[in-house]
Amino acid sequence: MSSESQLLIPLHVSYIKALGDNKDDLAYHMTTHLRMNAIYWGLTALCIMGHKEALDRQETIDFVMSCWDEDAGAFGAHPDHDAHILSTLSAIQILVTHDALDMIDVPRVAKYILSLQQPSGVFAGDSFGETDTRFIYCAVNALSLLGHLSDLDVEKTVSYIRRCKNFDGGFGARIGAESHAAQVFVCVAALAILDKLDEVDQQTLSWWLAERQLPNGGLNGRPEKLEDVCYSFWVLSSLSILNKISWIDSEKLTSFILSAQESENGGIADRPGDMPDVFHTHFGVAGLSLLGYPGLADLDPVYCMPADLIVSKGLRKSWKALERRTE
């Protein structure tokens, strides 16, 4: 297997560009339920690699708008798919990245998101009512980008997150659920957006997060599990928000992410030797940005979007990444 020591930017750019050309591939059609997210992952990775132009702006915006669900007042993952908070957040992130929020009825989308909050404070993913701390993050992030955070009952929202906190400092998907790196990220990032990081037991959580690193440099999502590029990002972004990246070995993590690259056709996989996909490509590149990898643009770990955009919207929080290296 390849043990690359460089980020293969041109290959990854062409890999992402080619994703839309796979229409003769069954897998392409079987993953329409993730298309909106996939475009957000691809676009964000391209921005971080300095190749935003690789996906046509107008085509992208047209696709996003074709997923509008008029009955619900939000976005589905693909034309004629039902609105869901996951695809709605991705749609908003794409539109913000392309400075095209004026395409949508912002108050209506904000209303849809707020309608998903349950009496306990948690958010449902859609009208069928699955609840998860992930959806709290989607709601808080989206409302913040839409400039409608002031419509949210912050205490009610925070109180649910508080009840998901475990003895190890981490957070789970629901009350009583085991701590899990992805759920830690969504809770910590949501609290950061709400300026409520004092809810986090920072010492204990940072210890738990740092314990995720394995001897091969990769990070897992829970104790005694395998390392993975996406979990590496969730742990790393949480540490960045808590200003504690120095608690892990960043050099080893950098080599782990680089070793998960596919060196023929581009893309990053969950771990070395596996099939790449746009999800891990995005989280791999995003992680390398936080690790100060040379030549990349800054990523905002709270919103998981290009940092300059978040600064220009006046939304930057006090996270800290490693300083960008020059070579």
């Binding site: 069954l26 969950d270 596996d274 099939m275």
Partner: peptide, 28 residues
Amino acid sequence: MHGVKRVGQSKEALGAKKQREQAKIKDY
């Protein structure tokens, strides 16, 4: 995708696989 091993496939093998998939894609 998680835990899906990369398998080196020749261009011919990939082409044949895509050919086989066309009918499935149409039905789907």
